[in-house]
Amino acid sequence: MSFIHAEYPVASGDYTRAGEASADIKRRLKQLGVSSMVLRRVSVASYEVELNLVIHSLGGQLILDVDQDGVRLTSEDVGPGIPDISLAMREGWSTANEEARSLGFGAGMGLPNMKRNADDFEIESEIGKGTRISMRFALT
């Protein structure tokens, strides 16, 4: 059973590196020959989830797992946690700070876009502990 596993640490507020993890994920999936349709959805979701770590978290990591059944993207952070997940999932709702907004982020589409593009989307969060997002993409 072969599989691909890669971990990408993402630092809070590090806009200069933002997007590098998702760029590497895209490159790998292209080399694996993942179909264009799936690739497009993973691209969008991985970029959104990476940016969410930069904008909202106190730091965390993005994890890529690929096996013959599909692609899994997992994001784990060390806080601060989301007080109301259903509110956070609402389109247009954003708690992005001034800096993020000044860079054009914070449209409140991050989580909705992830959910829309993934085949399975799970989110759990605990205040003071952190947030964990897990997305699965079927390969066919």
Binding site: S2, F3, I4, Q31, L32, G33, V66, Q68, L139
Partner: peptide
């Protein structure tokens, strides 16, 4: 750019 046509081999 694909490493192999077979996903398992590519991995």
């Amino acid at each position: 750019m694909k490493l192999d046509d077979n996903l398992m081999v590519a991995m």
